[in-house]
């Protein structure tokens, strides 16, 4: 087992599936502070080109789980192992997954005003970089791909999804979920018991909404009638007084 640390990532490379050997090596590393590092970083399990069957894969992940080291991503080139990993709910480390981990560092700030002085630009940049208090110290996982049926995207961080959650797919976060697309599957924010989490989606169609240990029930057609629209857009779900509330955010006219 080889341990490698990159910016915001901790990569555990395994070359041989030997349950006992992996366990003892992990226990050794835990004494040296592996858990603390794993909590602060994204944990990637690098399996090289190893072709694992379902039970081997399950045993391997259970070994990590039993020692409280959750695997965020799998790195592997074998197509069958990749498929098993996705079916098991662990995303594959691919270019479509961007981990911002610490902070956003935009290189350019788009502006239409050509007369802006450099000082003005600076002001915009500063305000953009300062996160609001509620999101301070929170990491964001940005995922730029549709979540397809049978797939589970799970993270301890806030998930910003640029794409759709298709019917039969699930997105689960211990923090918040923001879907810049259409939510048609299951969204579970604040998993397992964080009541302060929110879910926001641009559009929805028959989704299942869960926040912490509560499930939302609502009649989509009734809401459409109420708002006199064929489609519901910009929807925020949040927990309030043992209820999941739904708020339709209207565009603000300038």
């Amino acid at each position: 087992m080889i341990l490698k640390q990159e910016k915001g990532k901790i990569i555990i490379k395994i070359e041989k599936i030997e349950e006992q050997e992996i366990k003892s090596k992990l226990q050794e590393l835990i004494i040296k502070g592996l858990k603390e590092i794993a909590n602060k970083n994204q944990v990637i399990l690098d399996l090289g080109d190893m072709g694992l069957n379902e039970s081997e894969f399950k045993t391997l992940i259970n070994t990590f789980d039993s020692l409280s080291i959750p695997i965020d991503l799998i790195r592997n080139t074998n197509p069958i192992t990749k498929m098993i990993s996705i079916n098991y709910g662990i995303p594959i480390d691919a270019p479509s997954v961007i981990n911002t981990h610490n902070k956003l560092n935009p290189r350019t700030i788009p502006t239409n005003n050509k007369n802006n002085t450099s000082n003005n630009n600076k002001k915009i940049e500063t305000s953009f970089l300062e996160p609001s208090k509620s999101t301070l110290n929170q990491d964001i996982l940005i995922h730029r791909k549709n979540i397809r049926s049978g797939s589970l995207l799970e993270s301890g961080k806030t998930i910003l999804l640029i794409g759709n959650v298709n019917p039969g797919a699930e997105i689960r976060s211990s923090q918040n979920i923001i879907v810049l697309g259409k939510l048609m599957g299951t969204a579970h924010a604040g998993y397992p018991n964080n009541n302060n989490s929110i879910i926001f989606t641009l559009k929805l169609k028959n989704p299942l909404i869960k926040i912490a240990n509560m499930v939302a029930e609502f009649d989509e057609n009734e809401i459409k009638k109420q708002i006199k629209s064929k489609e519901i857009s910009n929807i925020l779900f949040y927990h309030d007084n043992n209820l999941i509330r739904m708020e339709i955010i209207k565009e603000q006219k300038e």
């Binding site: 197509p79 990749k82 594959i92 397809r148 049978g150 039969g168």
Partner: peptide, 19 residues
């Protein structure tokens, strides 16, 4: 049909993971 589309979506996800 919705059931057929959902299953097709799952298959596409598996095909994508197999590159």
């Amino acid at each position: 049909d919705l059931s057929s589309i959902r299953d097709a979506d799952r298959v596409i996800a598996n095909l994508e993971s197999m590159e």
